[in-house]
């Protein structure tokens, strides 16, 4: 704790960097995962394969994936950013598929029968109904990403991981503690916030 007290600005700056990389990676991950998930949701035969592949990628240890990405992109922002986007795919796409699959079939039947076009059924009925489940996916992904992003301190010199890895090299336990505690606090705060949002969009 003493490091946190003595270097609040340094911690705040690294926290800002941490939030930034997670937020941008999450946004990019969503741009890929939502269309991917919607595509899979429309093709029930294909979706186990797609989710299976994403799930397999998800089980690759993050350090191993990072090693490959560092070889491909070099040190810096890129490898950790790509790793975050890749890892998030499984959690995000899975919940898009589950959200759409969970929509009451009677509502979809009524929507079609009343004359909504396929796009209108998706945007006006399926998407709003699936939203809480999708936000649940965002929440789980965001928390995992906050944890994984600490590796950015190792390969890219960004985020709260910088404190953890510098602390390890410099034998400064307070730095390690400051980094981990702040990252955990961030995860808890994001979890609470997204739970609120999730509840806000719940229908039944």
């Amino acid at each position: 704790m003493s490091y946190l007290a003595s270097h609040p600005l340094r911690v705040a700056t690294l926290l800002g960097g941490h939030v930034e990389i997670v937020a941008v990676a999450l946004a990019v991950a969503l741009l890929i995962a939502v269309p991917l998930g919607l595509f899979a949701a429309r093709r029930p035969r294909l979706s186990p394969w797609l989710l299976g592949t994403l799930g397999a990628i998800y089980t690759i240890p993050s350090l191993a994936l990072l090693a490959v990405l560092v070889r491909a992109f070099g040190l810096g922002f890129a490898p950790i950013f790509v790793a975050l986007v890749v890892y998030a795919q499984f959690m995000l796409a899975r919940n898009v598929v589950a959200g759409i699959a969970g929509v009451d079939p009677a509502q979809v039947d009524a929507a079609r029968g009343l004359g909504m076009s396929p796009l209108q059924v998706l945007l006006r009925v399926e998407f709003p109904q699936a939203l809480p489940v999708m936000i649940g996916g965002v929440r789980i992904a965001a928390i995992a990403m906050i944890a994984i992003a600490t590796l950015g301190g190792y390969v890219g010199g960004v985020g709260l991981g910088v404190l953890i890895f510098n602390g390890l090299t410099l034998h400064q336990p307070q730095m390690i503690v400051a980094g981990s505690v702040t990252a955990s606090a961030l995860a808890v705060a994001v979890d609470a916030l997204l739970r609120l949002v999730e509840r806000r969009f719940a229908t039944a």
Binding site: D104, P105, A106, Q107, D109, A110, A111, G113, L114
Partner: peptide, 11 residues
């Protein structure tokens, strides 16, 4: 079109 399960849009 009216169905047994009604299918009112919950949101």
């Amino acid at each position: 079109y009216v169905i047994q399960a009604v299918g009112l849009f919950a949101h």
